[in-house]
Design a protein around this nucleic acid. Structure first.
Lengths: 213, 213
DNA sequence: CGTCCCGCATGACAGATGTCATACGGGACG
DNA sequence: CGTCCCGTATGACATCTGTCATGCGGGACG
């Protein structure tokens, strides 16, 4: 899905791409940004895997990316944009202020990281700041991300934990991941210990809230 | 939190209350509704338990309620509004199109039920329709709600399942809920059977996606 | 090149979880 | 006043889950 509305806005207006899967929220954010005379939303997409093409097609200056999207995540989209269009500024916008998300967003090359419960004024402000070359991150969240340290889980552990997250049993996990049942249990066991919890369900909860899942 | 902005809008404009915990989304929705000449957002709150007071204080015609909010849910707020201010129209707006949510919203006296991935235009449309005495619900979702039937869990089963949802062990649940450990297991067992799943984690997932948790 | 650590894997064992039969008091409903 | 369902409880049993000792292969480092 790609919407064009190149009408309106000053000739010098910042050209913004908005990527967010919930139509109502996306269009509402567009309305909000539309109130700013120096900002123009020139493209909207509802899927992560449509971001790059839309950014190219509409000569976008700033991309505003939600994280949770079908197709691919905003983080992955950010990485793609960063390598394909290095000039483009990237603002990652998310519901969840998870330290791991902030870390991944920054590693993917984001210029700003905003949570949706921040005041709306910060959105336009962030767009202007990244254009001016600044980086915008919530200091509290940055502190949390640094305090928590990096994701302690190995790839395999994360994979198994993610697969286990909706309640699948060890036998199913073993089949799906082509592992022995015992191996699945070991990965879950080490994940449980690394996360300092007592069972897989707590491990899932904890990994989720850190953005490590 | 209560914001007043009685300025602007026609004298005959619909007076709308907006309840949504994420500031950015809330203010964006306000901006969106603000574009409609016949609609005026006269109050905004970020918590469910502030809805009733704000509705009273601002002579609101229509309340737009998100479900997931601190304080109390939009469903609970709707029930409170319905009994205290029977004239008021209620639109429930939610991220998740869960059949159980629709059912509860309707039982709580909502006049409309919208999901956030519907097109933005439906929001203003719904406000106008409920004012005209119509009810607005997504037909697909209504069908799903009817097909699924009502929540099969007893109060106690739901309570135990909810408490178990973040990974607590039987012993902890028993202590917290003042039950014997065996009783906890029985409740979880019956819940697991009613939901046609194979363990507590799947039961939690399933109950959640139905809006039964 | 040996050694050490890490990721990965396996199986044995103990403890947690899920099932089932059974039981009892209380409220609802016919 | 039976009958049924709910909430509560117990104990026995089977299965699942978490821990641990152990082993293998590869990369890092001295």
């Amino acid at each position: 899905m790609t919407t064009q509305n190149d009408t309106g806005g000053a000739a010098t207006a910042v050209r913004v791409l908005l990527a967010e899967d919930q139509s109502m929220v996306r269009e509402a954010l567009a309305a909000l940004l539309g109130l700013e005379p120096d900002i123009e939303v020139v493209a909207q997409v509802a899927r992560g895997d449509e971001v790059l093409a839309a950014a190219r097609a509409h000569a976008v200056d700033v991309a505003l990316l939600d994280i949770e999207m079908p197709g691919c995540t905003g983080i992955e989209a950010a990485a793609g944009l960063r390598s394909a269009l290095p000039e483009l500024k990237i603002v990652v916008l998310t519901t969840f202020g998870r330290p791991g998300y902030l870390r991944s967003a920054m590693e993917a090359g984001a210029d700003a990281f905003l949570v949706k419960d921040a005041p709306a004024a910060q959105l336009a402000a962030a767009v202007r700041k990244v254009l001016a070359g600044e980086r915008v991150i919530d200091p509290t969240l940055a502190a949390a991300a640094l305090a928590e340290g990096a994701n302690p889980l190995t790839d395999r552990e994360r994979e198994v934990l993610r697969a286990a997250s909706d309640g699948r049993t060890n036998a199913e996990l073993a089949r799906d991941l082509h592992l022995s049942q015992g191996t699945v249990r070991n990965y879950l066991s080490t994940a449980i210990q690394k996360l300092a919890v007592r069972n897989r369900a707590e491990a899932v909860t904890r990994a989720r809230e850190q953005g490590w899942l």
